[in-house]
């Protein structure tokens, strides 16, 4: 599939006293997985939140499926945040959380019908959590929480999928399952943007990479980005941050950086 799903031109995003993103220009095509890499605080989450319409750009242009994000029909954008974003002691089962993915598509007078239930069932099957549908979410592991969030996004049947570091704190099996899901969705023409900390397997995950450090440092296929040199600067940068992350993230043991393995 051709065509541009997301177009950003000279995008600036400012918080009150701090500019998180400066002059970002890039496009994401239909049927493409774009990986966003960069050190902590480089604006990866800010970029995703801006595309999701959660933050407004302070200047520049942003078009998602031809419109500003907040003008899109409900259900168009699915955003998968980091799992710490919610209180997992909330009284809900896995089914309840995944069913929420349907809510944006239903007007308040519409019932949650059998077609909605079918979609939820299917989404649970895709992330291999069908047998955990009735489990209370407070009893899930980190990987299961992440898969439940992805299932909720799938149940929404979005036109654009945004993922914020979904592989942080999950087991290797979940990571591989997520990668397969993303590749399948991309093969069906869905545009996917994903922020990641894990520089190991970018070739397997993404068609193109966006290297970010408040500015766009490089944009291209993983090979092009490596050759551009921008990537290695980020690697060193990320490497130093990597040590800090491991200290307070007990589940992140798999996310060892290449340099540390060698």
């Amino acid at each position: 599939m051709k065509g541009e799903a997301v177009v950003a031109r000279d995008l600036d995003v400012r918080y009150e006293d701090f500019t998180a993103l400066v002059g970002a220009t890039f496009a994401v095509h239909y049927g493409e997985a774009l990986g966003i890499v960069g050190p902590n605080g480089s604006g990866k989450s800010t970029l995703l939140k801006t595309i999701a319409g959660l933050l407004l750009p302070s200047s520049g242009e942003l078009s998602v499926l031809g419109q500003p994000p907040r003008k899109l029909a409900p259900g168009t954008i699915a955003y998968v945040p980091q799992v710490e974003a919610v209180d997992w002691s909330f009284p809900a089962t896995v089914w309840d959380v995944v069913a929420m993915g349907r809510f944006a598509r239903l007007h308040f007078w519409q019932r949650f019908g059998s077609s909605d239930r079918d979609v939820v069932h299917h989404a649970l099957g895709v992330v291999r959590m069908g047998d955990l549908a009735g489990r209370r979410i407070s009893e899930l592991s980190g990987g299961q929480q992440q898969r439940a969030f992805v299932a909720r996004a799938l149940a929404q049947e979005p036109k654009l999928l945004l993922l914020d570091e979904p592989t942080t704190g999950v087991d290797a099996a979940t990571e591989e399952a997520l990668r397969e899901i993303v590749r399948k969705l991309v093969a069906c023409g869905l545009p996917v943007l994903m922020a990641t900390h894990d520089l190991d397997r970018v070739d397997d995950w993404f068609d193109r990479l966006l290297v970010l450090d408040r500015r766009v440092l490089a944009l291209g296929t993983p090979r092009e980005v490596v050759e551009s040199g921008a990537y290695s600067a980020i690697r060193e940068h990320t490497h130093t941050h990597g040590h800090l992350r491991h200290d307070h993230e007990p589940h992140a043991a798999h996310a060892v950086h290449p340099e540390m393995r060698a």
Binding site: K49, A52, G53, L54, L72, A73, P74, G75, T76, I77, A78, Y79, V80, P81, A85, V86, D87, F90, A92, V97, M100, G101, F103, A104, L106, F108, F112, R152, Q156, P158, L162
Partner: peptide, 19 residues
């Protein structure tokens, strides 16, 4: 009911989805 439930559990993702 549904909107209140979703925004109580996860207001950020609910908003991204158009609620």
């Amino acid at each position: 009911f549904r909107g209140l439930l979703y925004t109580t559990f996860d207001p950020v993702v609910a908003q991204a989805s158009g609620i």
